[in-house]
Deep mutational scan, measured.
Amino acid sequence: NKASVVANQLIPINTALTLIMMKAEVVTPMGIPAEEIPKLVGMQVNRAVPLGTTLMPDMVKNYE
């Protein structure tokens, strides 16, 4: 099973992601793959992301 990106803390709306906000975890359903973490740094979330939430592509602005 591949790990996904999971919020390590509450991430407020429009916050630019940093490494300490994210962790890799095997979850179902899968979200953004953990190997994308370096690419996510500096990208903004378009909603508040609660602690423990799996990051999905539609939660990150301009994620492709």
Rank of each mutant, 00 (worst) to 15 (best):
V60E: 00
V60L: 10
Y63E: 04
P29M: 09
G52N: 15
P29Y: 04
I11A: 01
V41A: 09
I20G: 14
M30T: 12
P12T: 14
L19S: 11
V6T: 13
V41H: 12
M43I: 08
T28N: 14
D58I: 05
V26L: 12
E25Y: 05
T15Y: 09
G42F: 04
G31H: 02
P29L: 14
V5L: 03
K39F: 06
G42R: 14
K61G: 14
P57M: 15
E25N: 15
I37Q: 10
M21H: 05
A34E: 04
I11N: 00
M30K: 11
R47D: 11
A24Y: 07
M59G: 04
P12I: 14
Q44V: 13
V45I: 13
T15E: 12
N46P: 04
N1V: 09
L19P: 07
T18A: 10
Q9D: 15
E36I: 08
T53C: 03
A3M: 14
Q9G: 05
P38W: 13
I11P: 00
G52C: 03
A7N: 02
M59V: 14
A48C: 03
N14Q: 14
L51N: 09
P38T: 15
G42Y: 15
D58K: 14
V6P: 00
V27P: 05
T54C: 02
E35S: 10
L40A: 01
G31E: 02
V27D: 03
V26R: 05
M59P: 01
I11M: 09
L10G: 11
G42P: 00
T28E: 06
E36C: 02
P29A: 04
V45K: 00
L19K: 04
E36H: 03
M30L: 09
P12G: 07
T15L: 09
E36V: 07
K23D: 04
E36D: 12
I13P: 08
V5E: 00
I11R: 00
K61F: 10
N62K: 07
I20H: 04
P38E: 09
Q9A: 05
M30W: 08
E36R: 13
E64N: 07
K39G: 04
Y63I: 04
G31V: 04
A34V: 12
T28V: 12
N62S: 14
N8D: 15
E64I: 12
A24S: 07
E64M: 12
N46I: 06
A3I: 04
M22S: 01
T54G: 03
M43D: 06
M21Y: 05
Y63W: 10
T54S: 10
V45P: 04
G31T: 01
P57V: 07
K2N: 15
N14S: 07
Q44H: 15
M22F: 11
A24F: 04
L55P: 01
L10T: 14
I11E: 00
V27M: 07
P12Q: 10
Y63K: 03
K39I: 08
T18H: 07
V60N: 01
V41R: 09
P38I: 15
A3F: 03
V26D: 13
T54I: 05
Q9R: 08
G42E: 09
P12R: 09
G42V: 02
V41M: 13
S4M: 04
P38D: 14
E36P: 01
M22H: 00
T53P: 00
P50Q: 14
L51C: 03
L40W: 02
K2W: 05
P29K: 14
V27F: 03
E64K: 02
T18R: 15
M43E: 07
N1W: 13
T18W: 03
N1I: 12
N62F: 07
P50D: 15
V49T: 06
P57W: 09
Q44F: 09
M59T: 05
M56A: 08
M30C: 03
N8P: 07
M43T: 10
M30Q: 15
M22Q: 02
I13N: 13
M43Q: 11
I37K: 07
P29E: 09
T15M: 13
I32F: 04
I20V: 14
V27Y: 05
P33E: 04
A16F: 10
P38K: 12
T15F: 04
K39V: 09
P50V: 06
A7Y: 01
G52W: 14
L17T: 01
L19W: 09
L19N: 07
P12K: 09
V41G: 03
N46C: 02
G52D: 04
T54K: 05
I37D: 00
A7W: 00
K61Y: 11
P33C: 03
M21T: 08
L19Q: 15
